[in-house]
Every structure is written in C-alpha cells, then in structure tokens.
C-alpha cells in the first residue's frame, strides 16, 4: 500500500538507468585495471629489486668463460648476495630466442654471458661495482633500477588516468541525473504541486525525488558493475598472447575486482545527490 509518491518510472528515467549502467561499467573496468596494475607493479618491483644481473661482454682474445667465472666469484665474495647463477652459453642463447627465433646458429655471434644475482638485505652492490670496474672492465652490473623507476612511473600514470576516468564518470552521472530530475519534475509538476498543497515541505519533495534517483542509480550501478565483473572474468579465460606472463599481466587481480565496488558505491550516491540539489534549485526558483 505504500507505493511511490511519484508516477511510475517514465522512459527517460529508464534511459538514465541505462546511462548509469554504462558509465559504471567503464568506471569499474578503469578502477579494476588500475588497481591490478598497481598491485602487480609492486610485485614486479619487489622482484626486480631483489635481483641484479651481471653482463660480461666478450673481449677480443680473452677467454670469455673464465671472465664469467671470475665475475661470479667476485659476486659470491660480496656480502648480501644470496645466490649467484652463471648462465651457460646455451641458457643465455635461449633467452634471446623470443627476439631472434630458434634454429639460428649463434656460436659465431658475440653473445654476452649473463650472471644473475639474488640479493638479500643489505647487498653491497656498489662495492661489487667498484671491484668489477678495476678487475673486469668488460663486466657490467645492472641493478634493474632503471626498470623499477620506469615501472613505478607507468603504474602511477595508469592509476592517475583511472582516477581521472572515475572522476569524469561521476561528473557525467551527476549531469545526467540533474537533467533527468528536471525532466521528471517538469513531467510531474501537478503531482509536486499537490504534494506541496497538502503540506509537503521542499525537503520532503527533494527527498522523494532523490530516493527515486538513488534507486535508479543503484539499479544501473549494479548492472554496470556486474557486467564489468563478467568482463574481468572473461579476460582470465581468454588465451591472450599465449605466453603466461602476458596473460597474467592483463588479468584482473582480486583487489582489482574489489576496486570495482568503489564506482558501484559512488555512482548511485552522486546520482541521488545531484537529483536532490536539482529539486532544491527547481523549487527554490519559485515553483510551488
């Protein structure tokens, strides 16, 4: 018996629910994507900072394999380096396969030898670099700092972009709700007048409209978020790129799915607020 005080949803408010659903879908994907990248980039950065690489370049007339052994020995003697692995020549060549293809005879090419270092806390990398510089000028120590910085920069950029998208979506939802409220007010002018004449306050009328738009916004947001979650799950199932690393980087992390809830909560709230302000403005302009 307590039906809504406003006439049934008109086509324009149903259109609003659809617009809200689409906007929420986009915002949820943006938030989930950014959150996933941010989480992953932290993982990668931790991994990268726990590793370093020694590259030994071939020197004419020198025993290249012995250079690699010496570099490995220097690394082993350095405090804070947990593990030193000198990659054999075939292992090093395998790393190049994705770029050069397989079945190529690399034996005549001056392929650098690699020694990977697993670091524990307080690794004395600068000490190692100094010793290498004097003993083995053809060895280069890469502490991955460049990659860590780049990754951090890219992740920050993505998070900023996603934040901007969510902000724009909220602004668009507010505008759409504002217009829809005006339309609904104009369409139910008689109803609003009767409500006032039988003693409804402006606050009551504003609340009545805001409640309707909160409901529409919530319906749209639930639909949009559900669609985004399904899209996220499909991304997991898709055989993107074939390689495990690449698929892993596209998939949405659990915290990414959780991030979808942010637009899902904000969009209906913004919709209701915009509607409430819209009614207050409309009524304040003398329509009673």
């Amino acid at each position: 018996m307590s039906a809504t005080l406003l006439p049934r949803d008109d086509p324009s408010s149903r259109a609003l629910a659809a617009v809200i659903a689409i906007l929420t879908f986009l915002a949820a994907l943006a938030a989930a994507g950014a959150q996933s990248v941010a989480t992953r980039s932290v993982d990668w950065r931790v991994k990268l900072t726990r590793q370093a690489t020694l590259q030994i370049l071939p020197r004419p007339g020198q025993d290249f394999g012995a250079d690699a052994e010496r570099a490995a020995a220097l690394a082993r003697a350095t405090p804070g380096i947990a593990e030193v692995t000198a990659l054999s020549r075939p292992e090093g060549e395998r790393l190049l396969a994705p770029w050069l293809g397989t079945g190529l005879d690399l034996s005549d090419l001056p392929v650098p030898r690699l020694v990977t270092l697993r670091l524990s806390d307080g690794a004395d990398l600068s000490g190692l670099a100094e010793r290498l510089a004097t003993d083995l000028p053809n060895a280069r120590l890469d502490d991955h700092r460049r990659w860590v910085d780049r990754l951090a920069g890219a992740a920050t950029g993505l998070v900023l972009a996603a934040t901007a998208i969510v902000g724009l979506v909220l602004a668009a939802a507010a505008l759409a709700a504002g217009f829809a409220t005006r339309g609904a007010l104009a369409g139910s002018r008689d109803v609003v007048e009767v409500l006032h004449l039988v003693g409804a306050s402006e606050a009551f009328v504003a609340k009545t409209f805001a409640t309707r738009f909160l409901r529409l916004g919530a319906a749209g947001a639930v639909a949009g978020t559900a669609a985004a979650a399904v899209a996220g799950l499909l991304l997991h199932a898709l055989p993107v790129g074939g390689g495990g690393a690449l698929t892993g980087s596209l998939a949405i992390t659990p915290s990414g799915f959780a991030a979808m809830l942010l637009p899902a909560a904000l969009v209906p709230a913004v919709t209701a607020l915009a509607s409430w302000f819209g009614v207050k403005r409309f009524l304040g302009s003398g329509v009673r």
């Binding site: 018996m1 005080l5 009767v194 039988v198 003693g199």
Partner: peptide, 19 residues
C-alpha cells in the same frame, strides 16, 4: 486534484504521509 497513480486510500492518507 487527486493523484491518479495512487489508490484512494493513499490519496486520503497523503497529508499524513508527507508529514
């Protein structure tokens, strides 16, 4: 000036409900 989308009961109750 009854509201056509509300029942007779709801129309009569309106002044109380808006309070």
């Amino acid at each position: 000036r009854l509201l056509d989308h509300l029942s007779t009961y709801e129309n009569v109750a309106l002044p109380l409900r808006v309070q």
